[in-house]
Nucleic acid binder design. Structure first.
Length: 418
RNA sequence: CGGGGCGUAGUAUACCGGUAGUACAUCUGCUUUGGGAGCAGUCAGACCGAGUUCGAUUCUCGGCGCCCCGACCA
């Protein structure tokens, strides 16, 4: 993509009403636009990152048998009344509205009720199970206080998955597969090392639920970890009983600030019973379906990556989620050869399947370098009179600042093989 | 929801009870051309409403919006 074609512009300064690092950098670099408190639009660069993250999650969900769907944003009141969660006293983040024809609708802050209800159309026998569905959905939550940039908003994108199983054993099997899938997701986006499967408060059916918590200074949660034993405990369940059941003592644990990037829940059969989602077992008896829910905050994860991976010059995207793999920075020249060379390299890389943002703008070198650092694409390739004379391109790794001088073929080779 | 702070140009900031200045950005011209360049010119602003006042961007009240701390976060 030619950068001259991008309608977004970079800014030297962050708007004064943004304090969080993720929002400051994402706005300055032109990834997002703030519409109102806690509500952000995703611009061309930002959308690319969102899609990269979604694709990684999609691949891992598909691997464990997930089928992608998309539910609706408008939801029926009656479903939430069945589970006693329509009331604003019970759920305080509802956005609601009235239908002109009469009656109320809710705006989806979560989707387990509608999905479970929908499944009544498709689940009738134990032979139909298990089923795992997932979606990438914009959740609408009337949060009293948005904060932390794109990490805690009123509107955000979440991957939510739901499993429908014949009983606890089958459910547990998928539940564990989901933990492994999530670990792969966080590894791939580059935060696996700092992400912990954390014991948190459970529902009515299990002692614990599991959260995926990533260490970050600006995190909202506090957890206690022991890296050697691979144990992490949310402070909300840190007590003698928990410590005993996990066979660990308090002084073996380190306190860290984290952000919750994923969570998985065991619903048991309560929700199925409330919503009358039953299947017939091999004896012809009606049995409630065993359900679980599995979430990853896509846009929150994006914000977390910026929080963790940036320096004083800008964002430093991990390769897997960067909007482009290469930032081709063409230094303006009197000689038309530089433009010709840049175009040629752009075509070669693009044909090799490398995603390139080509800074072809009529701007000075300093501005281009500063923008390049801010936008944070992993590899910068400079084309200028200098590199033309040297016969090799100057390649700079954003994360380390290391510079390599490479020919076209060496460059293609390196980018293909990481 | 409790507490605190803030609304001035596209952005960031000054000053002031007597109609607002600067920087960057925009646009024009010339110079410059490997780390946000220089000179000259250009465009552009007081959140909304009520009150006090001869006069309000400034003071008072109300509304709206934004930020922060806490609470909440299935």
């Amino acid at each position: 993509m030619k950068q001259s074609h991008l309608f977004t512009k970079t800014r030297k300064e962050a708007p004064k009403d943004e304090v969080s690092k993720n929002a400051q950098l994402l706005i300055r670099a032109g990834y997002v636009h703030k519409e109102m408190a806690g509500v952000y639009a995703y611009l061309p660069l930002g959308l690319r990152v969102v899609e990269k993250i979604k694709q990684i999650v999609r691949e891992e969900m598909d691997k464990i048998g997930g089928q992608e769907i998309i539910m609706t944003s408008l939801q029926r009141k009656e479903l939430w009344e069945k589970t006693k969660r329509w009331s604003d006293e019970v759920v305080d983040v509802w956005f609601k509205s009235e239908l002109k024809a009469g009656g109320e609708v809710g705006f989806g802050w979560s989707h387990e009720e509608p999905i479970a209800d929908m499944m009544k159309n498709y689940v009738s026998s134990y032979k139909d199970l298990p089923i795992v569905v997932y979606q990438f959905q914009t959740k609408l939550r009337n949060e009293l206080r948005a904060k932390s940039g794109i990490m805690r908003g009123k509107e955000f994108v979440m991957k939510d998955a739901y499993s429908f199983s014949v009983g606890e054993a089958d459910h547990t099997k998928f539940y564990n597969a989901s933990i492994e899938a999530y670990k792969r997701v966080f590894d791939r986006v580059g935060v696996g090392h700092d992400t912990f499967v954390t014991f948190a408060s459970g529902g009515a059916f299990t002692q614990f639920s599991h959260e995926f918590q990533t260490i970050v200074e600006t995190g909202e949660d506090t957890i206690y970890i022991n890296r050697e034993k691979g144990i992490a405990i949310n402070e909300e369940v840190l007590n003698d009983e928990t410590l005993a059941s996990l066979n660990i003592t308090r002084d073996e644990l380190e306190e860290v600030k984290t952000a919750e990037v994923g969570n998985i829940f065991n619903f048991g059969t309560q929700k199925s019973e409330d919503l009358e989602l039953y299947y017939k077992n091999d004896k012809g008896e009606n049995v409630p379906v065993w359900m679980g829910s599995y979430g990853i905050g896509i846009t929150r994860l994006m914000g977390l990556l910026v929080e963790k991976m940036s320096d004083d010059k800008g964002i430093v995207w991990p390769k897997e989620v960067a909007p482009f793999q290469v930032h081709l920075v063409e230094i303006k020249s009197e000689s038309p050869d530089v433009r010709v060379e840049a175009l040629e390299l752009y075509n070669t890389l693009t044909e090799a399947g490398v995603e390139v943002l080509w800074d072809d703008r009529d701007a000075r070198a300093g501005e281009k370098f500063a923008d390049s650092d801010l936008i944070g694409i992993p590899t910068r390739v400079v084309v200028s009179e200098k590199t033309l004379a040297a016969g090799k391109f100057e390649c700079v790794e954003r994360s380390t600042g290391r510079t390599f001088n490479l020919s076209t073929s060496e460059l293609v080779d390196q980018l293909r093989h990481g």
